[in-house]
């Protein structure tokens, strides 16, 4: 048993006949920010979906190989909802649920059985503060979360993910639909969160991985090409797969 937070061995993901990821093996260590970079359709998002077993809710999606989260095979879970509660997810496009801002953040705690208004108040305020959203919404906690601006909705999504008290936070190209200022604020939040949880950051921005990630994996067309400490991707003399170097230097992607 390794002490890796996430251990992936020979993971292959298929949608029907189509292979999205082939034979990937790597580990994510506790309390690191693990970046995943690579062009579209490389299998990055599919990998995230396996971690919280979203394959069960996705038509045609199957995976082979072994994936351990917290030392336990994700297939071994008898209650996969309990697995998902350990893992917070932030999507490329922000999704504010059509509930009030307050209810958005209180959703997961309520599922977990928190009923007392006072307890919920504390959680909601805490999560919104840590997502750098509190000051903007504290006077309209009853407004619909789905009608906030894009940047606010993305931070709301992060607050919601935090409300689960996750051990692992997955972010999938969170900055696609967000302005640069919000992106910078969220990046600052992530750097702080590292102390409390393990973060997997899928990003299309090489520089974002460089700013945040401790180690980074490069995925290309369904293959996990390289896993290395992030700075290695940017060292001239590092021993790096030429495809990864080409991608990082912007020759394709």
């Amino acid at each position: 048993m390794s002490d890796a937070e996430i251990a992936v061995r020979d993971l292959t993901i298929r949608y029907g006949q189509h292979v999205a990821l082939k034979g990937a093996s790597f580990e994510v260590r506790p309390h690191e920010i693990f970046g995943i970079i690579g062009p579209a359709n490389s299998g990055k998002t599919s990998f995230l979906k396996v971690l919280n077993r979203m394959d069960t809710f996705t038509a045609g999606m199957h995976f082979e190989g072994q994936v351990e989260v917290g030392g336990r095979d994700v297939r071994a879970w008898r209650n996969l909802y309990a697995l998902r509660r350990q893992i917070g997810v932030v999507f490329p496009l922000p999704v504010g649920l059509p509930l009030s801002v307050y209810d958005n953040v209180a959703f997961a705690p309520r599922l977990a059985g928190v009923r007392a208004k006072a307890d919920l108040n504390v959680i909601v305020e805490g999560c919104l503060r840590r997502a750098a959203l509190w000051d903007e919404v504290k006077d309209r906690l009853n407004a619909l979360g789905s009608l906030l601006s894009g940047g606010q909705q993305q931070r709301l999504t992060i607050a919601r993910a935090l409300s689960q008290k996750p051990r692992i936070l997955l972010l999938d190209e969170f900055s696609i639909a967000v302005d640069p200022v919000t992106t910078m604020r969220i990046e600052a939040v992530l750097s702080e969160l590292k102390a409390e949880m393990t973060i997997v950051l899928v990003t299309n921005l090489v520089q974002q991985a460089r700013r945040l990630a401790d180690r980074t994996a490069f995925f290309l067309m369904g293959e996990c090409v390289t896993v290395a400490p992030t700075e290695q991707f940017f060292l001239r003399d590092a021993d790096l797969d030429p495809r990864a170097r080409d991608y990082v230097e912007g020759r394709f992607g």
Binding site: S2, G71, R72, W77, N79, Y81, A82
Partner: peptide, 21 residues
């Protein structure tokens, strides 16, 4: 490495609760 693995007691977390049934 001699430190015990930092993993939680996943078996305890993985219980079928009322919501599951």
């Amino acid at each position: 490495m001699s430190a015990p693995p930092p993993h939680p007691d996943t078996a305890a977390l993985d219980r079928r609760d009322l919501a599951w049934y």
